[in-house]
Amino acid sequence: MTSRAPLRVAVAGLGAVGTAVVAALQAGLPGCRLAAVSARDLDAARARLPEGVPAVPLEGLEPLADLVVEAAPAALLPAIAEPFLRAGKGVVVLSAGALLRAGHLIDLAREHGGQITVPTGALIGLDAVAAAAEGVIHSVRMVTRKPVRGLVGAPYLVENDIAIEDIREPLRVFRGTPREAAVGFPANLNVAVALSLAGIGPDRTELEIWADPALTRNTHRIEVEADSASFAMSIENIPSENPKTGRITALSVVACLRKMGAPLRVGT
């Protein structure tokens, strides 16, 4: 019986998600091993890594790994992904919103045999949405409600002079599409973009964003009408150290990596 060599995984970014993914790889993830890390402060990263795992600039990751997990600011996605895709390798993308502004990455993956994977992240039910999309989806609607601190500083709020710091009741701050939200809320609504990519696209998916001072968790509700099924789903995510990101986001990346080397895969 033959066994495959472990998948060499690089992690770009050591924020809340990247740190959690690194920890899971260090603890042992069957079929995977931590190959390299890149971070804004390389010296600090080296001090946190086990011996033998290098911390290198972004451009140094590709020769060391088969796949990279992008857990960095959205603006860095092309710099992280392009070398891997040109080499026919894999990229796990958390900044899904940035994909809408970097469509050439999909072309690179197609041309060179690479693959971009967008994990489930802070959402549920993407398998069901993707399955429904094999038929006809009539509508997809998502309502996101977040604690105030998870939305403060979003470019859309700043540009439109929407003050939410002192609100005392829920306030709808946005109604539009995931494509628009990806620009106005780049650190908040990657889940909406992922939903749109699984379903009917970033221009047909309907999205509302609410700031709610009574909430302590990020909540998302999805309603789908399709020719195969009608369904609704909701999730309440406990924030990580970064209030804009739920704890389950990092766990979804770990689950995604675990699937890649597993003898049994459950779910599409």
Rank of each mutant, 00 (worst) to 15 (best):
S139T: 15
V148L: 02
L99N: 06
A131W: 15
G121P: 07
H112A: 02
V129R: 07
T177R: 14
I124N: 09
T177S: 14
G135Q: 13
G125P: 05
L157I: 09
A122R: 10
L126P: 09
E134Y: 11
V129A: 03
E134V: 04
L151S: 06
R172L: 05
E165M: 04
G150N: 05
V158Y: 06
V152M: 03
R149M: 04
A122V: 09
T117Y: 14
G114V: 07
V152L: 14
V143M: 00
A122N: 15
G153D: 05
A109C: 03
L157F: 12
P147I: 09
P155Y: 12
A133P: 03
E111R: 15
G121A: 06
A133L: 02
R141P: 00
A154I: 06
G114N: 09
R149E: 14
G113C: 07
L157S: 05
S139D: 13
G125S: 10
A131E: 08
E180K: 13
E165Q: 13
L123N: 11
E169C: 01
G103M: 01
E134S: 13
V158R: 14
S139R: 15
T120W: 11
I162Q: 05
E159R: 15
R179Y: 09
G125F: 11
G121F: 12
D161Y: 12
R110Y: 12
I167M: 04
V118P: 03
R168Y: 01
L105D: 05
P147E: 07
D166L: 12
R145A: 15
P119T: 13
H112F: 15
R179F: 05
R149Q: 12
V140H: 04
L108R: 07
V158Q: 08
K146N: 12
R175Y: 13
T120F: 03
T117S: 04
L126M: 08
I106L: 10
S139V: 08
D161N: 14
V136L: 07
Q115A: 14
H112V: 00
T177A: 01
T120P: 00
T120V: 13
R101L: 02
I116K: 09
L108A: 08
G150R: 08
R141I: 01
L126A: 05
T120L: 07
M142D: 01
V140K: 03
T144Q: 08
T117C: 01
V129P: 01
L105P: 04
R179M: 02
T144A: 08
T117Q: 04
E134G: 03
E180M: 10
P147R: 13
E180C: 02
P170A: 06
N160F: 05
R172Y: 05
T120D: 01
G113R: 12
G121C: 06
V129I: 15
V136I: 11
R168S: 09
A132P: 05
E134W: 09
G103N: 02
G135W: 12
E159K: 14
S139N: 08
I137S: 03
L99E: 03
I124V: 15
L123T: 15
G176V: 11
V152T: 14
G121M: 06
A109T: 10
A122I: 10
H104M: 00
L157M: 12
P170N: 11
